[in-house]
Write a protein that binds this DNA or RNA. Structure first.
Length: 369
DNA sequence: AAGACGGGGAC
DNA sequence: GTCCCAGTCTT
């Protein structure tokens, strides 16, 4: 019925990128790639995927790992809940399926963190099952091909796109077909300045025919970003730096971070930070010097971090956090230490330790000073 | 149906 | 600076 699959598969066979997870048929390795690729670019994922699979080569290996090591391998990727779901999925594969992945869409869909897209991707790519996928790439390609209006991720528009993907799926090579459409969206049918001259199915594209490529897909409504002001402390003790582990209820839960505090407008930052460090960790920091500024964006927040540094006397210790940490300060972003409080880490051990990207930027700002 | 959830690469 | 990515879960 569809005249799309032929040209698409031929194009894919000739032009597909040599991505590491395309060299395996191991469903575990493919699941890890798909979860990492959720809302995350291919170029970013490659190195994480290699390192993760080298350490957790089978579901049982991840299921047995502790959360700290898991986060160390995920730090910097974002959407950290994915990592916990992936561990839970690995445990479920061990418990429900004896450590072997089920060649069954519904069983895959039942795994934690595996939704309609990921279940379809693993089913089609690892097991050759005829299941469609719709991700951002597929949504863009199909919305342009068939003039599908509306937010591709919601309601009737999403249903229409999944229906189109199902209708046009190649039943002989579902995994390659799905990857071909995604590849086309990533490389040719790009959000901006699409390369229609290089598109194997441009003749079938209604948006191109009508000269309205730039109006598809319909842009999503956006919220204005919220500005957040933060003061962070780089506390040094000889060759060590004081870090906190972020609380399980906070954003970036479980990652290491600099002790930091969200500031109300017109706050005397160093004084407030110093008082908070004393009240929370019982560390006395007489002199905080401003050493720089770090900027960071987190889902509709713009964060500006004033970075302060202090050299503490050798032997300085900290008490476990006191009081109600959640009530102590606003903590949309900062002020989220867990009950272990301030801990000392050798600076040379920091890389690979599970520091948040925000934390890395704060240390970089301090190092520039 | 809408909101929460990171980070960075490309323009 | 802005956009948006091989999405999923929760409310």
């Amino acid at each position: 019925m569809s005249s799309l699959a032929g040209p698409l598969l031929a194009w894919y066979d000739a032009h597909r990128r040599d991505l590491p997870w395309r060299r395996t048929s191991d469903p575990w390795a493919i699941l890890v790639s798909e979860v990492m690729l959720q809302q995350t670019r291919v170029e970013v994922v490659e190195e994480y995927w290699r390192r993760f699979l080298a350490r957790f080569d089978r579901p049982a290996a991840l299921a047995a790992a502790d959360d700290e090591e898991l986060l160390q391998h995920w730090a910097g990727l974002g959407y950290y809940r994915r990592a916990r779901f992936l561990k839970a999925a690995a445990a479920a594969v061990v418990e429900r399926h004896g450590g072997r992945f089920p060649a069954d869409f519904d069983a895959l869909l039942a795994l934690p963190g595996v939704g309609r897209y990921t279940a379809g991707a693993v089913a089609s790519i690892a097991f050759g099952l005829p299941r469609p996928v719709v991700d951002g790439n597929v949504a863009r390609v199909l919305s342009r091909l068939f003039l599908v209006e509306g937010d591709p991720t919601r309601g009737a528009t999403a249903r229409r796109l999944w229906q189109l993907a199902e209708e046009h799926l190649d039943r002989e090579r579902p995994g390659d077909f799905n990857q071909a459409v995604m590849e086309l969206g990533a490389v040719v049918c790009r959000p901006k300045s699409p390369r229609c001259e290089d598109c194997p199915i441009s003749g079938a594209c209604r948006a191109r025919r009508d000269g309205v490529i730039d109006r598809f897909p319909t842009p999503k409504a956006r919220r204005a970003p919220v500005d957040v002001r933060v003061a962070a402390a780089v506390l040094r003790r000889a060759d060590e730096v004081g870090l906190v582990r972020r609380d399980a209820s906070a954003r970036m839960a479980g990652l290491l971070d600099l002790p930091a505090l969200e500031l109300a407008p017109r706050t005397d930052a160093p004084r407030r930070l110093s008082e908070w460090l004393r009240a929370t960790f019982d560390v006395s920091v007489p002199r905080l010097s401003r050493v720089g500024t770090a900027r960071h964006g987190i889902t509709h927040h713009r964060i500006e971090v004033e970075v302060y540094e202090a050299e503490l006397a050798p032997g300085t210790e900290a008490s476990p956090p006191r009081g109600d940490l959640a009530a102590a300060a606003p903590r949309r972003i900062a002020a989220a230490p867990d009950a272990d409080g301030l801990r000392w880490f050798r600076c040379e051990d920091l890389p690979g330790l599970g520091l948040s990207a925000l934390g890395r930027k704060i240390l970089a700002a301090a190092a520039d000073a």
